[in-house]
């Protein structure tokens, strides 16, 4: 099962788009998985573990993204990242962001 591939479609809910803090959270979470994570917006591909790459997508609110994970924990990764994206608005509103 080493080359598991899992994909999931997500929508940017954050009203300001995928800016520094949501991108930070995404990359941080993505970094916890072994699987390689790719985030795709139309023609653009970003490394899901790179905050700079994610910011380069310039994903505004409402943008649809594909999260593609490849590796042993691919499925867990897309699940967790998909959930994060869904919670993004409330997360920011309620908790701010923990320092680390």
């Amino acid at each position: 099962m080493r080359n598991n591939v899992s994909t999931r479609k997500v929508t940017v809910l954050n009203p300001q788009g995928l800016h520094a803090r949501p991108a930070y959270q995404f990359a941080k979470l993505a970094g916890k998985f072994q699987a390689g994570i790719e985030v795709i917006k139309e023609e653009q591909h970003a490394n899901g573990k790179s905050i700079l790459d994610l910011l380069m997508l310039a994903a505004e609110a409402g943008t649809e993204l594909w999260v593609v994970a490849r590796g042993e924990d691919a499925h867990e990764a897309t699940e967790a990242l998909g959930q994060l994206m869904e919670q993004m608005v409330s997360l920011e509103e309620i908790r701010g962001l923990e320092p680390d």
């Binding site: 803090r21 991108a23 990359a27 490394n47 573990k49 790459d53 701010g96």
Partner: peptide, 20 residues
């Protein structure tokens, strides 16, 4: 408070970004 410190966490992550 943590909310204000968050941007520095993001800076740190940029700095440690593998692509960079």
């Amino acid at each position: 408070g943590d909310q204000y410190a968050a941007i520095f966490a993001a800076h740190l992550q940029m700095l440690e970004d593998p692509r960079l």
